[in-house]
Computed example of a mutant assay.
Amino acid sequence: MEAVGVFDVVLAVGLFAVAGYALFGRSRVHAAAMFLVFGVLLAVSWAWLHAPDVAIAEAVLGAGVTGVLVMNAVTATPEPPRALAGAGNRPGPWYGLLSGALAAVLAMALLGAVWQWQTVTGAGAVARGEMAATGVSHPVTAVLLDFRSYDTLLEIGVLAAAALGALALAPGGRLLPEPAPDTGPMGAMVRVVVPVLVLLLGWLLVAGSTRPGGAFQAGALLTGAVLMIYLAGLGPRRSMERWVRPVLLAGLAAFLLLAAVSAALAGGWLVLGEGWAGGVILGLEAVLMLSIGATLAVLLVLMDRINAAAGDRV
């Protein structure tokens, strides 16, 4: 067996083994840790399949942000003893049989879709033939913000609704407390690292029009920078909190404004003219980066605040 084949087999076996442990492990903390490992392996898999955009998104969003939320959720409350966990609430044998049957049907449907995909041709060629009209040269950015812009608009709407709903749960109605700033190593590190992250996210944002990158990846880095500032107790908290809701809605508002303008100028909703599509896409991605970064940061900060408030009550 060739070296490439060996790596493929090892990666596939590792994915199934880690996923199985995450689903059937008896400890919530161990299952959450395996979820993080699964996200890393999945990012490696996408990179191995020459899909760097998906690999970056999986690493920072799937394994990173989602992993933090899962780990925070499972450690927020103590795990019950094994003898009491699920006592009197164990599913019967039919539950396992039905779950296995549904999983088998889903697996067959996925295999059938993959098999049919090998015979479907033409969509990729059509997309590549229309790339020049989008004003960007990277196909992923062109698909997300031009060919498939309605889907992206709805995704941004879901993110904005989730963040605004989460803000309603803020303890005491405040998102950000006013702690004393960290004057030790943590504060010094944040003051050095955050400007570097800002430069890197700016590069990722601009690079998205010609290579892997874009609003989602840059927004995830922005989330990391905001969380570092939050943990170090830095930044003007009241000013930041005052601008949270406008920034959360900025991406959705920019998308809807673009839809209205394009309907008036180009004769269709989110139909971008060839002469100005590139600049509009880059500007829209900049606004989306701010909204995505703010949304993810709000969810993580609120999770930390809610857990801290619950611990104080206990």
Score class of each variant (00 low, 15 high):
112 G>Q: 08
130 E>I: 03
121 T>W: 09
111 L>T: 09
108 M>L: 15
142 A>Y: 06
123 A>N: 05
117 W>V: 12
127 A>C: 04
124 G>T: 05
109 A>F: 02
135 G>D: 01
136 V>G: 00
133 A>D: 08
113 A>Y: 06
113 A>I: 08
128 R>H: 11
136 V>N: 00
121 T>I: 10
136 V>D: 00
108 M>H: 07
119 T>H: 13
109 A>E: 05
113 A>H: 03
118 Q>L: 11
116 Q>Y: 05
121 T>A: 15
139 P>D: 07
122 G>I: 14
130 E>D: 13
122 G>D: 06
121 T>V: 14
137 S>L: 04
133 A>R: 09
134 T>N: 06
138 H>F: 14
108 M>P: 00
123 A>S: 13
116 Q>R: 13
114 V>Y: 04
138 H>V: 03
137 S>D: 11
116 Q>N: 11
123 A>V: 13
123 A>F: 09
128 R>G: 05
110 L>V: 13
141 T>I: 03
140 V>Y: 01
114 V>S: 12
134 T>L: 03
123 A>I: 14
127 A>V: 15
132 A>Q: 10
109 A>R: 12
126 V>T: 15
140 V>S: 06
126 V>A: 15
117 W>K: 04
117 W>M: 13
137 S>K: 02
139 P>V: 08
141 T>P: 00
130 E>P: 00
117 W>T: 14
134 T>S: 03
121 T>R: 14
135 G>E: 00
136 V>K: 00
118 Q>K: 12
109 A>Q: 08
142 A>E: 01
119 T>V: 07
120 V>M: 13
116 Q>H: 13
142 A>C: 10
114 V>M: 07
129 G>C: 04
136 V>A: 03
124 G>D: 07
108 M>W: 09
113 A>K: 08
140 V>T: 09
132 A>L: 09
123 A>Y: 06
120 V>L: 15
110 L>Q: 07
108 M>I: 12
117 W>E: 14
135 G>K: 00
140 V>D: 09
133 A>W: 02
141 T>Q: 04
133 A>L: 11
141 T>W: 01
138 H>R: 06
133 A>E: 07
132 A>F: 02
138 H>L: 05
139 P>I: 11
108 M>Y: 02
138 H>W: 15
139 P>H: 03
127 A>G: 05
114 V>A: 15
108 M>S: 10
116 Q>G: 08
123 A>Q: 10
141 T>G: 01
115 W>R: 12
133 A>T: 11
127 A>P: 01
115 W>L: 12
112 G>R: 05
131 M>D: 04
120 V>D: 14
140 V>H: 02
119 T>M: 10
129 G>N: 07
120 V>A: 14
126 V>H: 05
118 Q>E: 15
131 M>S: 05
110 L>Y: 09
130 E>G: 02
112 G>S: 08
139 P>L: 13
115 W>P: 00
117 W>S: 15
128 R>P: 01
113 A>C: 11
114 V>P: 00
108 M>G: 06
132 A>C: 02
140 V>L: 07
122 G>M: 05
125 A>G: 07
119 T>Y: 11
142 A>S: 08
124 G>P: 01
134 T>H: 02
125 A>T: 15
116 Q>I: 08
117 W>L: 12
129 G>H: 08
133 A>M: 02
122 G>T: 04
113 A>G: 15
122 G>V: 10
110 L>W: 09
